[in-house]
Design a protein around this nucleic acid. Structure first.
Lengths: 312, 312
DNA sequence: GGTTGACCTGGTACCGGTTTCATAAATTAT
DNA sequence: ATAATTTATGAAACCGGTACCAGGTCAACC
């Protein structure tokens, strides 16, 4: 493989000069520049990116931590990140965790090892304190509100506000008893925390029996539908953590000739449009774009993306 | 930033020994190994990945070329790739092209510059010849059948076979006139080529007026629905290049109180299950996994993933 | 007792670039 | 005419590792 020294030797100039030509810097005589460029072209030479990155100490690569790739939420966020990164000439590496803290830690160590300039956590299993400890090795962006006193950059949607809007609307629509579907029932998940908080604000204490957890996709929603269909006292409507999950709940009732249960979903996916139920659009592409911007900045700014409640 | 030389100096041993400790090689005395490990730990040392990769000449990173990230087809393929890569300790970088050949060329040049060990083309705009020319700089996998005599690795679904099955079923079901929806109406797209081929085999010549092109998402399908609703002579059914697009066609007819038009989609997405129309499951995750395996091998093997036609 | 081979260690070239610094010539300013 | 810049170029250190090779110790084997 031909390298910069070969070009230097063959052209008769120094590597410094060749480097200047490669990087389009000034202070190279026109004739020499032309000659070096010709030789580079003739030898089919391309500078080695690794050597460059090592020398410069940055990779122009950002790692995106997510549980798994094939989920509408993450797909939309990633799309926003990838688009913004493309515009800015950055590369995006996907880092799946499957919610494994150990794996997350490995990615944080890769940040330490300079494999990425920054990490974006679209979801996390580790404590925020853990992320903060790695802050000194590179920029870290998380996609939730980490609280004011935390030295982390953050881009997040207005979960609490939009959840409260949605639930208020549900209450005013006459749904007295509201069921809830969540993914992870733990305190790490911002979505879970905000849902509970909004629920308490609007409906008061959330009874365990009105809550179905462990739902990440349509089939889980279908199972949730089966659960709620048998529940007494019955719920009047269900607030789910995603449109496809809400669609599952809805479809279970349809498939079993029950009176359709009103559902509220999230993300404004195709399923909510097809089945015409209300949803919250979190503008996840915008979230991704914001997250990318923060990843390339060095601040610890927080950026709020407004969500829209879509009544159907 | 502390490096291997610091560790060597502070421990009193050579960089060779430290390197051996880092890489868990034998031929290091236990006491020295312990001392070096302690110093590495105390100094919070992590070896620099870039330096390592440069020295080794490989990155354990694979670039995945796709038009854009937020599309169910690519999301599923990428998911398969990412999972397989995770298992194998590889990293995946997403390379969006927006169908721009110039951008594709840039990614090929990045392969040349050793930024990736391999490239997977889930879609392409360039000619196959172009990809072949870059084969010598690294492994290249494409997700379509490149033909037997081409020196490219390939993983692809049985498009032609499954399309013929689907269209045969449609014909036998009494749909005499079949409309078709496609994305790109050019010869580069394997999906387009195979659809036309299957159509000719089952229905004969595809009339231009029975073809709607430029469809990549639901809204496009809806527009296609509007087109077919006005078409005379009308079509009896529509074969679309994706479930969400088929859903759009279907939904247009529903929304306008027309007799629902039978549609056949692809990918077995949620929309086809909700609206209960037939579809083809191309097992895209399996496709992604196969593509990854080929990317890390050095062969130019072809791998066919069987598709399933799902009648509904 | 000498040869063999496993074990241990360090020196150093190498991967392929960037960047600082020194030097000198050509311009420009005073 | 001289001082101060600007332009042009190369030598060499540096980024932070890996890997080959040489050299030395020590037990086993013939």
């Amino acid at each position: 493989m031909t390298n910069i020294h070969d070009i230097a030797r063959l052209s008769g100039y120094s590597v410094s000069t060749v480097s200047r030509v490669i990087n389009h810097q000034k202070y190279v005589a026109d004739d020499k520049r032309a000659k070096v460029e010709k030789i580079m072209h003739d030898l089919d030479y391309v500078p080695n990116r690794l050597a460059r990155d090592l020398s410069k100490g940055r990779t122009k690569t950002i790692g995106v931590v997510l549980p798994y790739a094939n989920h509408p939420y993450f797909a939309r966020v990633v799309d926003g990140i990838v688009m913004a990164a493309f515009e800015a000439g950055y590369k995006i590496t996907l880092l799946p965790t499957n919610y494994d803290m150990t794996v997350e830690r490995q990615y944080l160590d890769q940040l330490r090892s300079k494999a990425y300039d920054a990490l974006i956590f679209t979801s996390r299993s580790s404590q925020l304190e853990t992320l903060e400890r790695y802050r000194k090795y590179g920029q870290i962006v998380c996609c939730e509100d980490p609280g004011d006193d935390r030295p982390l950059a953050a881009a997040y949607t207005d979960r609490l506000g939009s959840f409260v809007s949605a639930l208020n609307w549900a209450k005013q629509s006459g749904y007295e008893k509201m069921g809830v579907v969540l993914s992870r029932n733990n305190v790490i998940s911002a979505s879970t925390r905000m849902t509970r908080q909004a629920y308490e604000r609007v409906y008061g204490h959330l009874e365990d029996r009105d809550l179905f957890t462990g739902a990440v996709k349509y089939e889980d929603g279908y199972r949730a539908g089966a659960y709620f269909a048998k529940l007494t006292p019955a719920v009047d409507a269900v607030f789910a953590n995603g449109d496809d999950i809400a669609a599952g709940v809805h479809q279970y009732y349809l498939d079993h000739q029950l009176t359709p249960l009103p559902v509220i979903g999230q993300e404004n996916l195709l399923s909510s449009r097809l089945l015409k139920f209300s949803t919250i659009d979190h503008h996840l592409e915008a979230l991704g774009q914001a997250a990318f911007r923060l990843a390339t900045a060095q601040s610890t700014t927080h950026e709020l993306i407004k969500s829209d409640f879509i009544k159907r």
